[in-house]
Each structure stands twice: as structure tokens, then as C-alpha cells.
Design a binder for these strands. Structure first.
Length: 663
RNA sequence: GGGUGAAUAGCUCAGCGGUAGAGCGCUUCCCUUACAAGGAAGAUGUCGGGGGUUCGAUCCCCUCUUCACCCA
């Protein structure tokens, strides 16, 4: 049995957390394990231009909680990570690097430029993976995919060729937004407004309108597919308000300019014959002699739009594709509804006849503590690892999950983190107390409370059942804030503030209270695990008894099942009265300036937990007090708490302070 | 310019037809041996302005104002 420090100090656990993560990975915990039910999700591919910012940590904390929850439910769970080559952003960044070295991509040549950029992307890709590991994220690293990998490259090529064959891709010359710095067209929007000096956000260059030949994708048919995916009920969108936006975008969808005058990206699979004929040969077709390859690359969002297919081996009929397509959930920012989510539903639904995911969770934007947008140009971005270093990974995740509701932006900062850390310290302290009484979590599953008979034991079991229901409902309804808040309140208000304070004297000898605490804490650790994986697992190990399966990761344990038999309205009523009377008694004490340490005489009637009430209210049992010389008579339903006077006040004229009726 | 969302305690946010809620902050008391990044008690709001519907509106409808985001 391990010993507990008096306080939980996150920094003392970093080394152990890292070991634990390595053990999870070694055990293959993040890989899907065949089961009757499946749950698949892709991670929005991370832009290789930089590391993770707080917004990523938010998205990942939500995602990881859902994934771990599904794993505990016993599903065959896939969370597939990946990175995105981010054509224009990466090329602009590399060109700035080259300019600083006094050279240019043209001096370097296309092949050398691509090799250099690829090496750079490999490096940042590694950085991102390291950051995610540090944050305790549990994607299937073995399936990690990069948009320029051979698989996605083939999928991108195949999709383009098919759309070309279907006559949906055409070449046209029309006004296009043109970035003077990157020397490329930018978007699919025809514009009749002069764009003037609007700044290209990627490279800070001037934008102007140019008329150049570009390749376009006709979107009418695809938009219809995306619309029917939603209207048929195949695809559900959270929050529902954003479904309106989704449909509006589809109504207004214009043809999509696919070509970019860049080197970095998927080269457009178009070849030109000697007579100028353009054709898109498929990935398995030989290019006839004399045909030349188009110089341009594809809009990055085209390959990103195929991501649910490209990561699973499409267009081949792979086993992964059969098992994990469509995905069950996609979690991404509401700002990407147009750029990414819709491109996926259009392309994937059109190509396969099935929407790429069953449910779309659009999260809001994370802001500074006072609601300011975070951006590199404001210089107020935050590295989530700085927060993890200061508050611990679990506190960061808990703080983020506690604010996670679909669609809503969140102002987030140190106050949230301090609160989350305080809760984890509380959990630590509860575990420490449990250990001090020699109580263990007896087995790998929580023991049945041995028919709890004490009203406080029955009450705690009842509260736990309600909390479990709320926590589960939050996961089902994508309201992680609801889940987290229910767990935090149970831990703080019910278990710690009331139960432990009231039952502490019994914990040393009463088998009922010992079993109740052991079972409750075990279940609480399981329920909190998807949100705070490191600390819950460590406490699980520390509290496991001799027969416990402390070697098993908590993810391998079952999510607590519903046990409505635990609900006990009578015990809830009784303890609720105890709570109200205790509050009233403390008010009485505060109002009359009687210190908490001073014992007063008192007695309680009509309440099962009267002994606990008297002790918590610091009243010495004395049922000789008569109404006419009581200092206060507090009532709640049939329950009455009578409080006497201080000995030295016994001869004073009697003043009944107040009588409460609350229930 | 178009669209969407938001406006509730000093701050950050829940609630959403029936006497205003939480956390943090604030005031006072307590180092009550699991927890001082703690515990207890307490103060704090014309629920953005104006109309309407209703027996009754923070909640529904209209309108105005302000802020934010996406597209222009």
C-alpha cells in the first residue's frame, strides 16, 4: 500500500504520468479491440505549421473523454489521429524561411523544395504527437495518417478522377481572389467587390482580383447529397441551431475552385495532350507518352474533405473501411462547418452514398479569461503544456471538460484551472482519508454495498446513482459540462462535505460505512476516469486491496451500469432535512456569535440521522430542554432541532431566536 | 452589406412561463487532526432598453441597442 502525501502536487506526478502513458501504449490500450459494438472517430488532422494551442487541447480533451468512455462501455473503439499538409500556410512559412536565408523556392527547384518542406512537416508532426501524449490523449497511434501519405494521396487522386469522369470538374476562367504574395488563387468565390487591400491571413500579402484559368468542382449535386444526409436523419448535428447554418451553406454553395498555384500539396491529377486536351487519368492508369502533368496542386480542403475515407483505405474495400465507415462522431470547431464539415459530407456522401459520420459535434471557440479572441497576431495564444506544467494534465482536462457544451464559446483561464486543481486535491484528500481508515477498493469492480441500512449510507448510494445517471446522460447528449459538473458536485457536496463529515466516526468500525465508502469511491474513480485519467488510475492502484487487479488500466474496466435499485427517496428526504437543519443551526450560531468550538445543549426529533445532526451542529445531546427555555426551535417537516442556551446565559431572559419551516 | 449567436450578481456562466442560481471574488468567523488552492455563515441582481401575448415573462413574439463569429 502506498503512502499519501498530505497534498496532491501535480508536478510530483509528471514522471509517473509519463510511465503510465507508456504502459497504456505498450498494452495496446488505444487500439480497437473487436467487440459487438463499434465506435469510430477521426481526429481533425492537425496543421503541420505549428504545435498545439489551447483550442486543440479543448477539442482533444473532449474527444479523449468520449473515446475513453466508449472504451469503458466495451465498444470496439477507434480514434484515428493525423496531420494535414496545409498547402498555402506551409508553403508561405517555408518561403519566409527561404527568403530569410536569401534564397527562394525557384532557386531551390520543385523537388528540393518539396523534400525540405516534407522534412519540416515530419518534425512538427512529431512535436504534435509528443504534445498529445503529454496531455494523455489516447488515439490509435498505429493508424496515424498524414494527408500526403500514399493512402490519402491515392484516395485524393481517385476521388478527383471519378468526379472528373462524372463531368463535375471543369476548367474555367473567372474572377478569383488572388494572393499577390503566394501567387495563387484563394477561394471559390466569384466576386463583383473590389477586394482592395484585404490581407491574406496566411502570408500577410495583398489580395487582388485576377482572372485566371482554374479547375472547378460543380457543387449542386454534391450539396444535394449533403442535404439529404442531414434530412434523412443519417447525420445529426449538435448544437441543433447550427444545423440551420449547415443547410444555409448548402443552399448558397457555389462551385469550388480546386486548383492552387502552389508546389506544396497534392498535384492536380490532370494531364494535357499535345492538342491541349485535358484528361484525368486514374491512379492505376498509365500516363500516355507526350502528355504533361498540370503544374498546380489541389486545395488542401479537397483532401481534408475525403479524410473519413482516405484514412480507412478507400477506394479499396478494406476491412477498416467496412468496420469504421461511417464514423460515429466527428468533433470539430463550429468555425469549420463551412470549410471542412460540409466538404466532408458533400464529397464522402456523394462518393459512397453514406454520410461520413452519424453525428457532428461542433464546439465553440476558446477565449481568454475575459472573452478576448486568442490569436497569434494578438500575441495572446497559450501553449496548453504551460498550463499542464503548472496545474497538471488532469486539472487542465477537467477544467476544459467542465466548460464543454456544443456550440458555445468559452472564456477560459487560470480561475478555471485553479478550481479544477482544487477539486483534484479534494479527491486526493478523500483517498488519503480512506487509506487512513484502512479501507480498500476490494476488487476490480466496486463491491456491492452490503445492504446498507444506515440512512446516510443509503442516501449516498442514492446520490451516487443519480450522479451516475447524469454523468452517463451527459456523454450520450454530448454535454460534457453536465457530466463533469455532476461528478464534481457529488464529490464535493455529497461525499466530502456531508457524508464523510457525518460518518467519519463510524468509518473505523462500522462495516456498512466502510463498504459504502469503498464502493462509492471506486465508482467515482471510474466515472471520472475519462476526464482525469492519470490521477484516477493512480488512486485506483493505491487503494486496491490485496485481491485488486491494480495492474489493469481503468480504461479496461466497465463503465458503471445503472442500478436504479439504489435510489432511496426516503433516505434522500431524511438527509435533506438533516442538511437544512444543520444549515439553520449554523446560521443560529453565526447570528449569535457562538464559536463553532463551543458546545451547546440540543436535541433532535423526527429525524433518522439525529445523532449525526447533533454532532455536526456541535450540540451536546440533552433532551431535558423544554420549549420555553430553548434558544431556538428549528423545524423541517416532521423533524425538529431544539437548541439550548450557553450555561452562563441560562439565567438570562429567554429569547427564542427563530423557528424555521423549510420543507 | 448578408447570416448566425449572445446580453442574468464585481468576473465567468447555468436556468428558460409561476417568490432569481452556481463557481470565483467580497464581508465576518474558524488552523473543528482527509483537505487553508480548506471549512462555516453572510451581503450582492429594475435577468441590455422599449413594446406585445398571458392570470402571471428573465424565459414566448416584435423592435431597438451593444458585442462576438462566419461569409461578403
Amino acid at each position: 500500500m502506498s503512502t499519501f502525501d498530505a497534498h496532491y502536487t501535480p508536478a510530483h506526478h509528471f514522471a509517473r504520468d509519463a510511465d503510465r502513458y507508456a504502459a497504456w501504449e505498450r498494452a495496446g490500450l488505444f487500439r480497437p479491440r473487436p467487440a459487438a459494438e463499434r465506435f469510430a472517430m477521426i481526429l481533425p488532422p492537425l496543421n503541420i505549421t505549428g504545435g498545439l494551442h489551447l483550442g486543440h487541447a479543448y477539442e482533444h480533451a473532449i474527444s479523449d473523454a468520449f473515446i475513453r468512455h466508449r472504451r469503458m462501455l466495451g465498444a470496439e473503439t477507434l480514434w484515428l489521429p493525423g496531420t494535414d499538409h496545409a498547402g498555402i500556410a506551409t508553403q508561405a512559412l517555408m518561403e519566409r524561411q527561404l527568403a530569410a536565408e536569401g534564397t527562394s523556392r525557384h532557386e531551390l527547384g520543385r523537388d528540393a523544395f518539396l523534400a525540405r518542406t516534407r522534412a519540416w512537416g515530419d518534425m512538427t508532426g512529431e512535436t504534435i504527437a509528443t504534445q498529445m501524449r503529454r496531455l494523455g490523449m489516447s488515439p490509435d497511434w498505429d493508424r496515424s495518417t498524414y494527408t500526403l501519405d500514399p493512402g490519402p494521396a491515392r484516395a485524393t487522386h481517385a476521388a478527383f478522377s471519378r468526379l472528373f469522369e462524372q463531368g463535375l470538374i471543369y476548367r474555367a476562367e473567372r474572377d478569383t481572389l488572388w494572393c499577390t504574395g503566394c501567387q495563387t488563387g484563394l477561394s471559390d468565390i466569384e466576386t463583383t467587390e473590389t477586394a482592395g487591400g484585404r490581407i491574406c491571413t496566411r502570408c500577410s500579402s495583398r489580395i487582388e482580383i485576377r482572372s485566371t484559368p482554374q479547375w472547378y468542382l460543380a457543387t449542386t449535386t454534391l450539396a444535394a447529397s449533403a442535404r439529404s444526409a442531414f434530412e434523412s436523419g443519417q447525420l445529426r448535428i449538435d448544437p441543433p441551431e447550427l444545423a440551420t447554418e449547415y443547410l444555409r451553406w448548402l443552399d448558397e454553395m457555389r462551385d469550388w475552385c480546386l486548383s492552387r498555384q502552389l508546389w506544396w500539396g497534392h498535384r492536380i491529377p490532370i494531364w494535357y495532350g499535345a492538342d491541349g486536351t485535358a484528361h484525368s487519368f486514374g491512379p492505376d492508369e498509365a500516363i500516355p507518352a507526350g502528355w504533361t502533368h498540370d503544374e498546380d496542386t489541389l486545395d488542401t480542403w479537397f483532401s481534408s474533405g475525403l479524410w473519413p475515407l482516405a484514412t480507412l483505405g478507400w477506394p479499396e474495400a478494406t476491412e477498416d473501411l467496412a468496420r469504421y465507415y461511417p464514423n460515429d462522431l466527428l468533433i470539430t470547431g463550429s468555425d469549420l462547418i463551412f470549410f471542412w464539415a460540409i466538404r466532408m459530407t458533400m464529397l464522402c456522401t456523394h462518393l459512397t452514398g453514406t454520410a461520413p459520420f452519424k453525428r457532428l459535434y461542433l464546439h465553440g471557440m476558446i477565449r481568454t479569461e475575459h472573452g478576448k479572441k486568442m490569436s497569434t497576431s494578438f500575441g495572446n495564444t497559450i501553449d496548453p503544456l504551460d498550463y499542464a506544467d503548472e496545474f497538471g494534465t488532469d486539472a487542465l482536462r477537467l477544467a476544459l471538460c467542465r466548460r464543454a457544451r456544443p456550440g458555445a464559446d468559452l472564456s477560459f483561464g487560470r480561475t478555471d484551472l485553479t478550481g479544477a486543481l482544487a477539486l483534484l486535491k479534494k479527491l486526493w484528500s478523500i483517498a488519503r482519508l480512506t487509506t487512513a481508515y484502512g479501507i480498500h477498493l476490494a476488487a476490480s469492480t466496486p463491491p456491492e454495498p452490503q445492504e446498507p441500512t444506515h440512512p446516510l449510507d443509503r442516501w449516498l448510494a442514492s446520490r451516487l446513482e443519480r450522479t451516475r445517471a447524469l454523468a452517463s446522460a451527459g456523454f450520450e447528449e454530448l454535454d460534457l459540462a453536465g457530466t463533469t459538473d455532476a461528478l464534481a458536485r457529488f464529490m464535493h457536496d455529497d461525499l466530502s462535505d456531508l457524508y464523510l463529515e457525518a460518518r467519519k466516526p463510524s468509518l473505523r468500525h462500522d462495516p456498512g460505512s466502510r463498504a459504502t465508502l469503498a464502493a462509492t469511491l471506486a465508482e467515482l474513480l471510474l466515472l471520472l476516469h475519462p476526464i482525469a485519467p492519470y490521477l484516477t488510475e493512480q488512486l485506483w492502484e493505491s487503494l486496491a486491496g490485496a485481491g485488486g487487479s491494480s495492474q489493469d488500466a481503468l480504461d479496461a474496466h466497465a463503465w458503471p451500469a445503472a442500478r436504479p435499485g439504489r435510489l432511496d427517496p426516503e433516505a434522500e428526504t431524511d438527509v435533506d432535512r438533516l442538511r437544512r437543519l444543520l444549515h439553520a443551526a449554523r446560521s443560529h450560531r453565526a447570528k449569535h456569535g457562538i464559536p463553532a468550538g463551543t458546545m451547546l445543549p440540543g436535541h433532535a426529533d423526527g429525524l433518522e440521522c439525529s445523532a449525526e445532526l447533533l454532532r455536526l451542529a456541535r450540540l451536546r445531546p440533552d433532551d431535558t430542554i423544554r420549549d420555553h427555555h430553548a434558544a431556538a426551535i428549528l423545524t423541517c417537516g416532521p423533524a425538529t432541532l431544539t437548541i439550548g442556551t450557553l450555561p452562563q446565559d441560562a439565567e438570562q431572559p429567554l429569547r427564542r431566536s427563530r423557528t424555521l419551516r423549510r420543507c
